[in-house]
Nucleic acid binder design. Structure first.
Lengths: 230, 230
DNA sequence: AGACTACATATTGTTGAACGATCCTGCAAT
DNA sequence: ATTGCAGGATCGTTCAACAATATGTAGTCT
Protein backbone atom coordinates (compact mmCIF):
# COMPACT_ATOMS: atom_id res chain seq x y z
CA UNK A 1 0.00 0.00 0.00
CA UNK A 2 1.06 3.55 -0.44
CA UNK A 3 2.05 5.92 2.31
CA UNK A 4 -0.83 8.31 1.74
CA UNK A 5 -4.14 7.90 3.41
CA UNK A 6 -6.14 9.97 0.91
CA UNK A 7 -4.97 7.87 -1.96
CA UNK A 8 -8.38 7.13 -3.40
CA UNK A 9 -9.26 10.80 -3.31
CA UNK A 10 -6.22 11.74 -5.35
CA UNK A 11 -6.86 9.04 -7.88
CA UNK A 12 -10.46 10.09 -8.22
CA UNK A 13 -9.35 13.65 -8.91
CA UNK A 14 -6.91 12.49 -11.55
CA UNK A 15 -9.55 10.31 -13.15
CA UNK A 16 -11.61 13.45 -13.56
CA UNK A 17 -8.80 14.95 -15.61
CA UNK A 18 -8.85 12.11 -18.05
CA UNK A 19 -10.99 13.99 -20.50
CA UNK A 20 -8.44 16.81 -20.68
CA UNK A 21 -5.85 14.33 -21.73
CA UNK A 22 -7.87 13.02 -24.63
CA UNK A 23 -5.73 13.61 -27.63
CA UNK A 24 -7.48 13.80 -30.95
CA UNK A 25 -6.86 12.26 -34.29
CA UNK A 26 -6.28 14.06 -37.56
CA UNK A 27 -9.74 13.04 -38.65
CA UNK A 28 -11.30 14.80 -35.68
CA UNK A 29 -9.20 17.89 -36.06
CA UNK A 30 -10.09 18.17 -39.72
CA UNK A 31 -13.77 17.74 -38.88
CA UNK A 32 -13.42 20.45 -36.24
CA UNK A 33 -11.88 22.86 -38.76
CA UNK A 34 -14.53 22.22 -41.37
CA UNK A 35 -17.29 22.47 -38.78
CA UNK A 36 -15.95 25.85 -37.76
CA UNK A 37 -15.73 27.09 -41.33
CA UNK A 38 -19.24 25.96 -42.11
CA UNK A 39 -20.65 27.53 -38.98
CA UNK A 40 -18.94 30.84 -39.56
CA UNK A 41 -20.19 30.83 -43.14
CA UNK A 42 -16.91 30.69 -44.98
CA UNK A 43 -18.20 27.53 -46.58
CA UNK A 44 -21.67 28.46 -47.76
CA UNK A 45 -24.75 26.26 -47.87
CA UNK A 46 -24.90 24.38 -51.16
CA UNK A 47 -21.19 24.62 -51.76
CA UNK A 48 -19.47 21.46 -52.83
CA UNK A 49 -16.55 20.21 -50.76
CA UNK A 50 -14.11 18.66 -53.19
CA UNK A 51 -12.06 15.85 -51.71
CA UNK A 52 -9.11 16.74 -53.84
CA UNK A 53 -9.17 20.49 -53.28
CA UNK A 54 -9.80 20.42 -49.54
CA UNK A 55 -7.48 17.51 -48.94
CA UNK A 56 -4.74 19.38 -50.74
CA UNK A 57 -5.52 22.62 -48.91
CA UNK A 58 -5.42 21.03 -45.47
CA UNK A 59 -2.59 18.70 -46.35
CA UNK A 60 -4.41 15.50 -45.52
CA UNK A 61 -5.11 12.44 -47.58
CA UNK A 62 -8.42 11.75 -49.26
CA UNK A 63 -9.11 8.80 -46.96
CA UNK A 64 -8.66 10.86 -43.83
CA UNK A 65 -10.82 13.58 -45.25
CA UNK A 66 -13.54 11.14 -46.15
CA UNK A 67 -13.67 9.93 -42.56
CA UNK A 68 -14.14 13.54 -41.45
CA UNK A 69 -16.91 13.96 -44.00
CA UNK A 70 -18.73 10.99 -42.52
CA UNK A 71 -18.72 12.66 -39.13
CA UNK A 72 -20.00 15.97 -40.44
CA UNK A 73 -22.59 14.23 -42.53
CA UNK A 74 -23.93 12.46 -39.47
CA UNK A 75 -24.12 15.87 -37.78
CA UNK A 76 -26.22 17.07 -40.69
CA UNK A 77 -23.86 19.89 -41.48
CA UNK A 78 -23.13 18.44 -44.89
CA UNK A 79 -25.03 16.06 -47.12
CA UNK A 80 -23.36 13.21 -48.87
CA UNK A 81 -24.60 12.35 -52.34
CA UNK A 82 -23.32 9.10 -53.73
CA UNK A 83 -20.80 9.57 -56.49
CA UNK A 84 -21.40 13.31 -56.44
CA UNK A 85 -19.63 14.39 -53.31
CA UNK A 86 -20.51 16.24 -50.14
CA UNK A 87 -22.18 19.62 -50.02
CA UNK A 88 -22.72 22.09 -47.25
CA UNK A 89 -26.28 21.53 -46.14
CA UNK A 90 -28.99 23.91 -47.31
CA UNK A 91 -31.92 24.09 -44.94
CA UNK A 92 -35.49 24.51 -46.08
CA UNK A 93 -38.34 26.27 -44.34
CA UNK A 94 -39.57 22.86 -43.19
CA UNK A 95 -36.21 22.28 -41.59
CA UNK A 96 -36.57 25.49 -39.62
CA UNK A 97 -40.03 24.45 -38.48
CA UNK A 98 -38.78 21.05 -37.45
CA UNK A 99 -35.76 22.47 -35.69
CA UNK A 100 -37.97 24.73 -33.60
CA UNK A 101 -40.44 21.97 -32.92
CA UNK A 102 -37.64 20.09 -31.21
CA UNK A 103 -36.30 23.18 -29.47
CA UNK A 104 -39.75 23.88 -28.07
CA UNK A 105 -39.71 20.38 -26.72
CA UNK A 106 -36.19 20.25 -25.32
CA UNK A 107 -35.54 23.64 -23.83
CA UNK A 108 -38.65 24.20 -21.72
CA UNK A 109 -38.31 20.66 -20.40
CA UNK A 110 -35.13 21.72 -18.64
CA UNK A 111 -37.25 24.10 -16.53
CA UNK A 112 -39.91 21.55 -15.72
CA UNK A 113 -37.83 19.52 -13.32
CA UNK A 114 -38.82 19.24 -9.69
CA UNK A 115 -35.26 20.04 -8.78
CA UNK A 116 -34.72 23.78 -8.28
CA UNK A 117 -32.15 25.39 -10.51
CA UNK A 118 -28.79 25.33 -8.79
CA UNK A 119 -26.38 28.22 -8.47
CA UNK A 120 -23.85 26.16 -10.35
CA UNK A 121 -26.24 25.70 -13.23
CA UNK A 122 -26.89 29.43 -13.50
CA UNK A 123 -23.26 30.41 -13.82
CA UNK A 124 -22.85 29.48 -17.50
CA UNK A 125 -26.07 31.32 -18.25
CA UNK A 126 -24.70 34.51 -16.72
CA UNK A 127 -21.42 34.04 -18.51
CA UNK A 128 -23.16 33.68 -21.86
CA UNK A 129 -25.16 36.84 -21.31
CA UNK A 130 -22.09 38.76 -20.28
CA UNK A 131 -20.28 37.58 -23.39
CA UNK A 132 -23.23 38.58 -25.56
CA UNK A 133 -23.35 42.02 -23.97
CA UNK A 134 -19.66 42.56 -24.60
CA UNK A 135 -19.90 41.41 -28.18
CA UNK A 136 -22.92 43.64 -28.76
CA UNK A 137 -21.15 46.65 -27.26
CA UNK A 138 -18.21 46.13 -29.55
CA UNK A 139 -20.33 45.54 -32.59
CA UNK A 140 -19.26 41.95 -33.10
CA UNK A 141 -22.55 40.67 -34.43
CA UNK A 142 -21.45 37.13 -35.12
CA UNK A 143 -20.17 36.74 -31.56
CA UNK A 144 -23.50 37.91 -30.19
CA UNK A 145 -25.04 35.00 -32.01
CA UNK A 146 -22.49 32.57 -30.63
CA UNK A 147 -23.03 33.77 -27.08
CA UNK A 148 -26.78 33.66 -27.54
CA UNK A 149 -26.57 30.05 -28.60
CA UNK A 150 -24.34 29.26 -25.68
CA UNK A 151 -27.03 30.68 -23.44
CA UNK A 152 -29.58 28.28 -24.79
CA UNK A 153 -27.14 25.41 -24.70
CA UNK A 154 -26.63 26.14 -21.00
CA UNK A 155 -30.37 26.33 -20.56
CA UNK A 156 -30.85 22.87 -21.98
CA UNK A 157 -27.96 21.64 -19.84
CA UNK A 158 -30.08 22.32 -16.75
CA UNK A 159 -31.84 19.07 -17.56
CA UNK A 160 -28.64 17.32 -16.56
CA UNK A 161 -28.68 14.87 -19.43
CA UNK A 162 -25.64 14.10 -21.55
CA UNK A 163 -27.85 13.06 -24.45
CA UNK A 164 -29.92 16.19 -24.33
CA UNK A 165 -26.72 18.18 -24.36
CA UNK A 166 -25.57 16.61 -27.59
CA UNK A 167 -29.01 16.82 -29.17
CA UNK A 168 -29.07 20.51 -28.33
CA UNK A 169 -25.55 21.08 -29.59
CA UNK A 170 -26.52 19.45 -32.85
CA UNK A 171 -29.69 21.49 -33.21
CA UNK A 172 -27.85 24.74 -32.67
CA UNK A 173 -25.12 23.84 -35.12
CA UNK A 174 -27.76 23.12 -37.73
CA UNK A 175 -29.49 26.33 -36.92
CA UNK A 176 -26.34 28.23 -37.76
CA UNK A 177 -26.78 27.12 -41.31
CA UNK A 178 -30.06 28.99 -41.41
CA UNK A 179 -28.48 32.32 -40.65
CA UNK A 180 -26.34 32.17 -43.75
CA UNK A 181 -29.33 32.30 -46.04
CA UNK A 182 -30.45 35.51 -44.39
CA UNK A 183 -29.52 39.02 -45.40
CA UNK A 184 -27.77 40.28 -42.30
CA UNK A 185 -27.05 37.30 -40.10
CA UNK A 186 -25.19 39.44 -37.59
CA UNK A 187 -28.23 41.47 -36.62
CA UNK A 188 -30.56 38.62 -35.99
CA UNK A 189 -29.62 37.92 -32.40
CA UNK A 190 -29.28 41.44 -31.04
CA UNK A 191 -32.92 41.88 -29.97
CA UNK A 192 -32.82 38.69 -27.96
CA UNK A 193 -30.20 39.76 -25.51
CA UNK A 194 -32.82 41.43 -23.34
CA UNK A 195 -35.16 38.49 -23.53
CA UNK A 196 -32.45 36.14 -22.40
CA UNK A 197 -31.69 38.51 -19.54
CA UNK A 198 -35.32 38.36 -18.56
CA UNK A 199 -35.33 34.57 -18.59
CA UNK A 200 -32.23 34.49 -16.44
CA UNK A 201 -33.77 36.97 -13.99
CA UNK A 202 -36.87 34.83 -13.60
CA UNK A 203 -34.75 31.77 -13.02
CA UNK A 204 -32.70 33.51 -10.36
CA UNK A 205 -35.88 34.43 -8.56
CA UNK A 206 -37.03 30.83 -8.81
CA UNK A 207 -40.04 31.67 -10.94
CA UNK A 208 -39.71 28.65 -13.13
CA UNK A 209 -43.11 28.72 -14.75
CA UNK A 210 -42.73 32.29 -15.89
CA UNK A 211 -39.23 31.65 -17.12
CA UNK A 212 -40.64 28.78 -19.07
CA UNK A 213 -43.29 30.96 -20.63
CA UNK A 214 -40.78 33.66 -21.50
CA UNK A 215 -38.66 31.01 -23.17
CA UNK A 216 -41.60 29.74 -25.21
CA UNK A 217 -42.35 33.28 -26.33
CA UNK A 218 -38.76 33.72 -27.32
CA UNK A 219 -38.76 30.54 -29.37
CA UNK A 220 -42.00 31.36 -31.13
CA UNK A 221 -40.72 34.79 -31.99
CA UNK A 222 -37.37 33.61 -33.27
CA UNK A 223 -38.98 30.93 -35.37
CA UNK A 224 -41.38 33.41 -36.93
CA UNK A 225 -38.60 35.79 -37.82
CA UNK A 226 -36.52 33.05 -39.36
CA UNK A 227 -39.42 31.74 -41.39
CA UNK A 228 -40.09 35.24 -42.63
CA UNK A 229 -36.64 35.22 -44.18
CA UNK A 230 -37.53 32.24 -46.36
CA UNK B 1 -46.41 18.83 -72.24
CA UNK B 2 -47.40 15.27 -71.66
CA UNK B 3 -50.65 13.65 -72.68
CA UNK B 4 -51.75 12.84 -69.15
CA UNK B 5 -53.73 15.21 -67.02
CA UNK B 6 -52.82 13.68 -63.67
CA UNK B 7 -49.16 14.10 -64.36
CA UNK B 8 -48.25 15.80 -61.11
CA UNK B 9 -49.96 13.08 -59.14
CA UNK B 10 -47.89 10.41 -60.84
CA UNK B 11 -44.70 12.32 -60.31
CA UNK B 12 -45.47 12.85 -56.67
CA UNK B 13 -46.03 9.14 -56.24
CA UNK B 14 -42.75 8.38 -57.93
CA UNK B 15 -40.97 10.92 -55.78
CA UNK B 16 -42.15 8.93 -52.80
CA UNK B 17 -40.31 5.92 -54.16
CA UNK B 18 -37.07 7.79 -54.37
CA UNK B 19 -35.91 6.51 -51.03
CA UNK B 20 -36.28 2.92 -52.24
CA UNK B 21 -34.10 3.72 -55.15
CA UNK B 22 -31.37 5.24 -53.07
CA UNK B 23 -28.45 3.09 -53.85
CA UNK B 24 -26.00 2.71 -51.04
CA UNK B 25 -22.28 2.62 -50.83
CA UNK B 26 -20.19 -0.20 -49.49
CA UNK B 27 -19.52 1.89 -46.41
CA UNK B 28 -23.22 2.13 -45.63
CA UNK B 29 -23.89 -1.52 -46.29
CA UNK B 30 -21.06 -2.54 -44.02
CA UNK B 31 -22.35 -0.22 -41.31
CA UNK B 32 -25.80 -1.73 -41.73
CA UNK B 33 -24.45 -5.23 -41.29
CA UNK B 34 -22.45 -4.36 -38.21
CA UNK B 35 -25.39 -2.43 -36.75
CA UNK B 36 -27.55 -5.49 -37.19
CA UNK B 37 -25.01 -7.80 -35.59
CA UNK B 38 -24.54 -5.50 -32.64
CA UNK B 39 -28.26 -5.10 -32.11
CA UNK B 40 -28.93 -8.81 -32.24
CA UNK B 41 -26.13 -9.39 -29.78
CA UNK B 42 -23.79 -11.40 -31.96
CA UNK B 43 -21.21 -8.75 -31.28
CA UNK B 44 -21.35 -8.29 -27.53
CA UNK B 45 -20.85 -5.10 -25.55
CA UNK B 46 -17.18 -4.56 -24.78
CA UNK B 47 -16.01 -6.67 -27.68
CA UNK B 48 -13.29 -5.21 -29.80
CA UNK B 49 -13.88 -4.85 -33.52
CA UNK B 50 -10.57 -5.50 -35.20
CA UNK B 51 -10.11 -3.65 -38.45
CA UNK B 52 -8.06 -6.45 -39.89
CA UNK B 53 -10.28 -9.33 -38.83
CA UNK B 54 -13.60 -7.75 -39.74
CA UNK B 55 -12.29 -6.23 -42.93
CA UNK B 56 -11.05 -9.64 -43.98
CA UNK B 57 -14.27 -11.33 -42.93
CA UNK B 58 -16.49 -8.95 -44.86
CA UNK B 59 -14.08 -8.63 -47.75
CA UNK B 60 -13.67 -4.88 -47.56
CA UNK B 61 -10.60 -2.76 -47.19
CA UNK B 62 -9.55 -1.19 -43.92
CA UNK B 63 -10.24 2.30 -45.21
CA UNK B 64 -13.81 1.47 -46.11
CA UNK B 65 -14.33 -0.25 -42.79
CA UNK B 66 -13.00 2.73 -40.90
CA UNK B 67 -15.57 4.96 -42.57
CA UNK B 68 -18.27 2.58 -41.40
CA UNK B 69 -16.86 2.67 -37.89
CA UNK B 70 -17.15 6.45 -37.88
CA UNK B 71 -20.84 6.17 -38.63
CA UNK B 72 -21.50 3.62 -35.92
CA UNK B 73 -19.43 5.58 -33.48
CA UNK B 74 -21.52 8.66 -34.08
CA UNK B 75 -24.59 6.51 -33.42
CA UNK B 76 -23.08 5.53 -30.09
CA UNK B 77 -23.22 1.84 -30.90
CA UNK B 78 -19.45 1.59 -30.70
CA UNK B 79 -16.83 3.68 -29.00
CA UNK B 80 -13.64 4.67 -30.70
CA UNK B 81 -10.51 4.83 -28.59
CA UNK B 82 -7.54 6.43 -30.24
CA UNK B 83 -4.84 3.95 -31.16
CA UNK B 84 -6.77 1.18 -29.44
CA UNK B 85 -9.60 0.51 -31.82
CA UNK B 86 -13.36 0.44 -31.68
CA UNK B 87 -15.38 -1.52 -29.16
CA UNK B 88 -19.04 -2.39 -28.94
CA UNK B 89 -20.46 0.07 -26.48
CA UNK B 90 -21.10 -1.02 -22.91
CA UNK B 91 -23.83 0.97 -21.23
CA UNK B 92 -23.76 1.89 -17.58
CA UNK B 93 -26.65 2.33 -15.18
CA UNK B 94 -26.33 6.09 -15.69
CA UNK B 95 -26.75 5.54 -19.40
CA UNK B 96 -30.01 3.73 -18.78
CA UNK B 97 -31.22 6.56 -16.57
CA UNK B 98 -30.28 9.12 -19.18
CA UNK B 99 -31.84 7.13 -21.98
CA UNK B 100 -35.13 6.98 -20.13
CA UNK B 101 -34.94 10.62 -19.16
CA UNK B 102 -34.99 11.43 -22.86
CA UNK B 103 -37.65 8.85 -23.64
CA UNK B 104 -39.88 10.33 -20.97
CA UNK B 105 -39.43 13.64 -22.68
CA UNK B 106 -39.85 12.58 -26.29
CA UNK B 107 -42.58 9.97 -26.30
CA UNK B 108 -45.29 11.66 -24.23
CA UNK B 109 -44.72 14.84 -26.20
CA UNK B 110 -46.09 13.09 -29.27
CA UNK B 111 -49.43 12.82 -27.46
CA UNK B 112 -49.49 16.43 -26.33
CA UNK B 113 -50.18 17.91 -29.72
CA UNK B 114 -53.37 19.82 -30.36
CA UNK B 115 -53.80 17.80 -33.51
CA UNK B 116 -55.88 14.68 -32.93
CA UNK B 117 -54.19 11.41 -33.73
CA UNK B 118 -54.97 10.44 -37.30
CA UNK B 119 -56.11 7.07 -38.52
CA UNK B 120 -53.03 6.94 -40.68
CA UNK B 121 -50.80 7.48 -37.68
CA UNK B 122 -52.42 4.62 -35.77
CA UNK B 123 -51.84 2.04 -38.47
CA UNK B 124 -48.17 1.40 -37.72
CA UNK B 125 -49.02 1.13 -34.03
CA UNK B 126 -51.53 -1.61 -34.74
CA UNK B 127 -49.10 -3.35 -37.06
CA UNK B 128 -46.40 -3.35 -34.39
CA UNK B 129 -48.74 -4.85 -31.82
CA UNK B 130 -49.90 -7.51 -34.23
CA UNK B 131 -46.29 -8.41 -34.99
CA UNK B 132 -45.49 -8.58 -31.30
CA UNK B 133 -48.46 -10.82 -30.66
CA UNK B 134 -47.43 -13.18 -33.43
CA UNK B 135 -43.87 -13.32 -32.23
CA UNK B 136 -45.00 -13.95 -28.66
CA UNK B 137 -47.33 -16.74 -29.77
CA UNK B 138 -44.50 -18.43 -31.61
CA UNK B 139 -42.04 -17.96 -28.80
CA UNK B 140 -39.72 -15.66 -30.73
CA UNK B 141 -38.66 -13.52 -27.80
CA UNK B 142 -36.22 -11.35 -29.68
CA UNK B 143 -38.85 -10.47 -32.26
CA UNK B 144 -41.24 -9.43 -29.52
CA UNK B 145 -38.64 -6.92 -28.47
CA UNK B 146 -38.18 -5.65 -32.00
CA UNK B 147 -41.91 -5.21 -32.47
CA UNK B 148 -42.22 -3.54 -29.11
CA UNK B 149 -39.62 -1.02 -30.08
CA UNK B 150 -41.29 -0.42 -33.38
CA UNK B 151 -44.44 0.39 -31.44
CA UNK B 152 -42.67 3.10 -29.52
CA UNK B 153 -40.95 4.36 -32.62
CA UNK B 154 -44.35 4.74 -34.23
CA UNK B 155 -45.59 6.46 -31.11
CA UNK B 156 -42.85 9.07 -31.31
CA UNK B 157 -43.56 9.45 -35.01
CA UNK B 158 -46.96 10.90 -34.15
CA UNK B 159 -45.12 14.12 -33.41
CA UNK B 160 -44.52 14.42 -37.12
CA UNK B 161 -40.92 15.49 -36.82
CA UNK B 162 -38.11 14.03 -38.89
CA UNK B 163 -35.57 14.92 -36.23
CA UNK B 164 -37.54 13.36 -33.44
CA UNK B 165 -37.80 10.23 -35.53
CA UNK B 166 -34.06 9.91 -35.82
CA UNK B 167 -33.49 10.81 -32.18
CA UNK B 168 -35.92 8.09 -31.22
CA UNK B 169 -34.39 5.57 -33.58
CA UNK B 170 -31.02 6.27 -32.05
CA UNK B 171 -32.29 5.94 -28.49
CA UNK B 172 -33.89 2.60 -29.20
CA UNK B 173 -30.80 1.27 -30.92
CA UNK B 174 -28.75 2.22 -27.89
CA UNK B 175 -31.28 0.63 -25.63
CA UNK B 176 -30.80 -2.65 -27.42
CA UNK B 177 -27.31 -2.71 -26.03
CA UNK B 178 -28.78 -2.77 -22.55
CA UNK B 179 -30.63 -5.98 -23.10
CA UNK B 180 -27.47 -7.87 -23.83
CA UNK B 181 -26.14 -7.36 -20.33
CA UNK B 182 -29.28 -8.94 -18.92
CA UNK B 183 -29.82 -12.59 -18.16
CA UNK B 184 -32.74 -13.42 -20.40
CA UNK B 185 -33.13 -10.58 -22.87
CA UNK B 186 -35.89 -12.39 -24.70
CA UNK B 187 -38.29 -12.32 -21.78
CA UNK B 188 -38.00 -8.66 -20.98
CA UNK B 189 -40.57 -7.34 -23.40
CA UNK B 190 -43.30 -9.94 -23.04
CA UNK B 191 -45.18 -8.26 -20.15
CA UNK B 192 -45.41 -5.01 -22.06
CA UNK B 193 -47.49 -6.29 -24.91
CA UNK B 194 -50.68 -5.73 -22.93
CA UNK B 195 -49.63 -2.30 -21.79
CA UNK B 196 -48.96 -1.24 -25.35
CA UNK B 197 -52.37 -2.59 -26.31
CA UNK B 198 -53.89 -0.47 -23.60
CA UNK B 199 -52.11 2.64 -24.85
CA UNK B 200 -53.32 1.98 -28.37
CA UNK B 201 -56.87 1.47 -27.16
CA UNK B 202 -56.86 4.80 -25.34
CA UNK B 203 -55.50 6.51 -28.41
CA UNK B 204 -58.19 5.00 -30.61
CA UNK B 205 -60.83 6.32 -28.26
CA UNK B 206 -59.18 9.73 -28.37
CA UNK B 207 -58.34 9.73 -24.66
CA UNK B 208 -54.98 11.34 -25.13
CA UNK B 209 -54.31 12.32 -21.55
CA UNK B 210 -54.91 8.83 -20.26
CA UNK B 211 -52.83 7.33 -23.02
CA UNK B 212 -50.09 9.71 -22.02
CA UNK B 213 -50.30 8.62 -18.41
CA UNK B 214 -50.28 4.95 -19.35
CA UNK B 215 -47.19 5.61 -21.41
CA UNK B 216 -45.44 7.34 -18.53
CA UNK B 217 -46.27 4.40 -16.28
CA UNK B 218 -44.87 2.04 -18.83
CA UNK B 219 -41.63 3.98 -19.11
CA UNK B 220 -41.16 4.22 -15.36
CA UNK B 221 -41.74 0.51 -15.00
CA UNK B 222 -39.40 -0.50 -17.80
CA UNK B 223 -36.67 1.76 -16.50
CA UNK B 224 -36.96 0.32 -13.01
CA UNK B 225 -36.75 -3.23 -14.29
CA UNK B 226 -33.71 -2.45 -16.40
CA UNK B 227 -31.94 -0.70 -13.55
CA UNK B 228 -32.63 -3.68 -11.36
CA UNK B 229 -30.57 -5.76 -13.76
CA UNK B 230 -27.48 -3.62 -13.11
C1' DA C 1 -33.27 25.47 -83.49
C1' DG C 2 -34.02 21.33 -80.83
C1' DA C 3 -33.21 16.71 -79.31
C1' DC C 4 -30.55 12.78 -78.95
C1' DT C 5 -26.10 10.23 -78.96
C1' DA C 6 -21.43 9.35 -78.14
C1' DC C 7 -17.31 10.45 -76.34
C1' DA C 8 -13.97 12.82 -73.25
C1' DT C 9 -13.08 14.44 -68.70
C1' DA C 10 -13.34 15.03 -63.84
C1' DT C 11 -14.63 13.20 -59.44
C1' DT C 12 -15.89 9.86 -56.33
C1' DG C 13 -15.71 4.81 -54.52
C1' DT C 14 -12.77 1.30 -53.11
C1' DT C 15 -8.76 -1.25 -52.79
C1' DG C 16 -4.04 -2.72 -51.36
C1' DA C 17 0.29 -1.76 -49.66
C1' DA C 18 3.36 0.77 -46.93
C1' DC C 19 5.39 2.93 -42.71
C1' DG C 20 5.47 5.43 -38.47
C1' DA C 21 3.16 5.82 -33.95
C1' DT C 22 1.07 3.75 -30.14
C1' DC C 23 -0.38 0.18 -27.23
C1' DC C 24 0.00 -4.33 -25.02
C1' DT C 25 2.48 -8.44 -23.28
C1' DG C 26 5.93 -10.95 -21.22
C1' DC C 27 10.20 -11.14 -19.03
C1' DA C 28 14.23 -9.64 -16.83
C1' DA C 29 16.11 -6.58 -13.32
C1' DT C 30 15.70 -4.07 -9.09
C1' DA D 1 5.60 -6.04 -6.01
C1' DT D 2 7.18 -2.46 -9.04
C1' DT D 3 9.87 -0.77 -12.82
C1' DG D 4 12.27 -0.96 -17.33
C1' DC D 5 12.64 -2.77 -21.68
C1' DA D 6 12.17 -5.41 -25.93
C1' DG D 7 9.05 -7.29 -29.56
C1' DG D 8 4.85 -7.97 -31.68
C1' DA D 9 0.27 -6.52 -32.81
C1' DT D 10 -2.81 -2.92 -34.19
C1' DC D 11 -4.05 1.54 -35.30
C1' DG D 12 -3.33 6.21 -37.91
C1' DT D 13 -2.32 8.06 -42.10
C1' DT D 14 -0.63 8.40 -46.58
C1' DC D 15 -0.16 7.18 -51.36
C1' DA D 16 -1.05 5.29 -55.86
C1' DA D 17 -4.04 2.92 -58.71
C1' DC D 18 -8.25 1.59 -61.03
C1' DA D 19 -13.27 0.98 -61.45
C1' DA D 20 -17.73 3.25 -61.40
C1' DT D 21 -20.37 7.27 -62.02
C1' DA D 22 -21.59 11.96 -63.24
C1' DT D 23 -21.00 16.01 -66.10
C1' DG D 24 -19.82 18.70 -70.11
C1' DT D 25 -19.20 18.99 -75.07
C1' DA D 26 -19.27 18.18 -79.74
C1' DG D 27 -21.53 16.08 -83.37
C1' DT D 28 -25.51 14.13 -85.73
C1' DC D 29 -30.03 13.80 -87.11
C1' DT D 30 -34.57 15.78 -87.79
Amino acid sequence: MTARADDTGVLAALAGDRSLLNRSSTVERVAEILRERIIEGLLRPGERLSEDAIGRALGVSRNTLRESFRLLSHERLVVHELNRGVFVRTLSAEDVTDLYRVRKLIEPAALDGDVPVSEEGLRPLRAAIAAAANAAAEGRGADVGTANMRFHQALAALAGSARIDTIMRQLLAELRLVFHVMDRPGEFHAPYLDRNREILGLLERGELQQARQALLDYLADAEARLLAAY
